[in-house]
Amino acid sequence: MRKVYLFNGMSLDGFFEGPGHNLDWHQVDEEFNDFAIDQLHASDLIVFGRVTYSMMAEYWPTPQAIADDPAIAKLMNETPKMVFSRTLSLAGWQNTRLMCCEAAEELPRLKQLPGKDIAIFGSAELAEGLLATPGVIDELRILVMPVLLGSGTPLFKIMSDKIKLELAGVRQFGNGNVLLTYTIP
């Protein structure tokens, strides 16, 4: 069965974004891009919440993105996408479906269909709700970056129940980023 994984960056002090959706502390280099390309090749659906969708939809189709990161831009633009939102009225990014149903119900159904892995990129608010529903997210891929932001939005919010994980892999990048991969049993 295809799996649903959540991929997000996190500062060592647990923030996925600095104040004002700030992501300028993300370190992107060739090694990361190679990883991102491999990850996209193994995925045939990318799922977003509204905020991450809007940021990515504003960036990846632009001539600048296509010039700076042609391989990733092509994959991001061409891979089928879903954005789960009750407030968006239009999702104009190429190959995107606007979903107004519950992601926690839709994703388990999609997992039953044949295909490659299903990615959730960023989308911390959507992910928070999905994490609270057992059996939706199969794997966490957290890229821990060597920085203390001091303030921002925590990746993991307060939850009533703890979630036990199983370490599936650790990858150290040359720039000091560490990718921690966990399965959710």
């Binding site: 920085v147 203390l148 001091g150 303030s151 980023n177 560490v178």
Partner: peptide, 13 residues
Amino acid sequence: MFQDGLGKAELEL
């Protein structure tokens, strides 16, 4: 471990 409200600090792994 880390509380909110301090400035940014870059680290080396």
